[in-house]
């Protein structure tokens, strides 16, 4: 999957996450997570793992993924990352 443009999926609403993806000119998969400090401290590694695995399973190689989290669970991260990547690959 090739990222052709910037795209978003999700929302800045409780239990959701707004995922923005864009091409990464430096190459590779880069993840930026914005979330509450307590979640950042306790769960950022787990969340970044879920995002990375989802991106890799989608077959994408060079992408910048920004996730603005509002308390989303793993399944929501997976769904929103997939949707943003699909929209960016059109």
């Amino acid at each position: 999957m090739k990222i052709n443009k910037a795209a978003q999926a999700g929302a800045l609403e409780s239990s959701d996450v707004l995922v923005t993806v864009e091409p990464n000119p430096e190459g590779g998969i880069k993840i930026e997570l914005e979330t509450k400090r307590v979640i950042q401290k306790q769960f950022s590694k787990q969340i970044e793992k879920v995002i990375l695995e989802t991106a890799e399973q989608s077959g994408v190689e060079d992408v910048l993924i920004k996730a603005q989290d509002k308390g989303a669970l793993d399944y929501t991260f997976r769904a929103r990352v997939q949707a943003a990547l699909q929209r960016a690959s059109i």
């Binding site: 999700g10 997976r78 929103r80």
Partner: peptide, 15 residues
């Protein structure tokens, strides 16, 4: 429509 479809798929597998 596209993002809802993916969310529902993931929710059924997770919840």
């Amino acid at each position: 429509k596209d993002s809802a479809r993916l969310l529902v798929k993931e929710a059924i597998g997770f919840m």
